[in-house]
């Protein structure tokens, strides 16, 4: 066993030495090395698709390989925590999503958007309400009226628990639905198509195929303007409901990253988001481009934090 002991001691020694010596980094020319982009959701999902397309586009501007690393778990908490606590050298980027706002407010994550240096907001998708084609609800008002009459009886297929889209509606309109919690849109949508639940709320990209194929019928979209792909579908605003809600995705680096690195990244991602290949991809996938620089992104997040905080306060009474 002597050999084992000596090797173990050796490993520990080297570990300690390297740990002590590894802190200093020279930031003169950035980037010199491969960059990792942490995507806090699984491969194949919407966030992953945006992340991969973006990584692909930004490589041309940063001139180094950008690799997507999927770190899933805890509705994004695992990946975003890892991204926030990574070494602030600009070689670990994180795709942050709306969960960075909602998770800490619910006590499910220890990090907030303040633990990140924001780079750029890339994408925003409004929430779209949809029912089965032969559903009795012809408009969002039909749905709300029925909910007022039969509180808690209408089955809502929720793509995540808690679902802030439905909570926004419930709080504003004073109605309540029976929330059936599904694990993502991929499970919630078939339950509506199969007639097991009455309606769902998801992003256009997740439902456009079913809508065009006549398996789902959209009622209204929670955006400021109508969707290009669904020009006949009214917004909540047009229906007299002052409700806008959606999900968003952006790029961030850990707090403490040198400002010069942040500038390089902001410019590179500005170019990437405008890159024709990225634009084409986003259009094909029905994902909305919402291109905001670091400062506007910060304001955007603090506004969204207020929205979600008010919902959380409301149900936390």
């Amino acid at each position: 066993m002597k050999r084992l002991v000596s090797v173990l001691v050796g490993i520990l020694l080297v570990t300690a030495l390297l740990h002590a010596g590894g802190a200093a980094e020279d930031e003169v020319d950035y980037p010199r090395d491969d960059i990792s982009l942490i995507v806090p959701f699984a491969a194949g999902g919407g966030t992953d698709a945006v992340g991969r397309a973006l990584a692909n586009a930004v490589e041309n501007y940063l001139e180094v390989p950008v690799t997507v690393v999927n770190r899933t778990g805890g509705s994004g908490a695992v990946g975003m925590t890892e991204g926030a606590t990574a070494r602030p050298d600009g070689y670990t980027l994180t795709m942050i999503t709306r969960e960075i706002v909602s998770l800490p407010l619910m006590g499910l994550a220890d990090i907030t958007a303040d633990d990140f240096e924001l780079i750029r907001l890339v994408n925003m998708d409004p929430a779209l309400v949809a029912v089965q084609p032969d559903s009795p609800y012809e408009s969002i008002h039909d749905l709300l009226a029925d909910a007022r009459e039969n509180p808690g009886d209408i089955l809502f297929a929720s793509t995540a628990a808690p679902n802030f889209y439905i909570l926004t509606i419930e709080n504003d309109q004073g109605v309540s639905f029976n929330h059936i919690a599904y694990d993502g849109a991929a499970e919630a949508i078939p339950s509506v198509i199969g007639g097991h639940t009455d309606f769902t709320i998801a992003n256009p990209g997740e439902m456009i195929g079913q809508i065009e194929g006549g398996e789902l019928r959209p009622l209204a979209v929670m955006a400021e303007e109508r969707l290009d792909a669904l020009p006949d579908i009214p917004t909540f605003m047009e229906e007299g409901l002052d409700l806008v809600s959606g999900t968003w995705r952006g790029i961030a680096v850990p707090q403490g990253t040198p400002a010069e690195v942040g500038d390089v990244l902001e410019e590179a991602f500005a170019n990437a988001v405008a890159d024709p290949s990225f634009v084409e991809f986003m259009e094909n996938a029905q994902l909305g481009i919402h291109n905001l620089g670091a400062d506007e992104f910060r304001t955007f997040i603090s506004n969204d934090t207020e929205v979600i905080r008010s919902i959380v306060d409301e149900i936390d009474l």
Binding site: L8, I11, V14, T15, G22
Partner: peptide, 12 residues
């Protein structure tokens, strides 16, 4: 050994 190995991975 495996525990020591996994802990040393990030450094070595």
């Amino acid at each position: 050994l495996l525990i020591a190995y996994s802990l040393s991975l990030p450094y070595l």
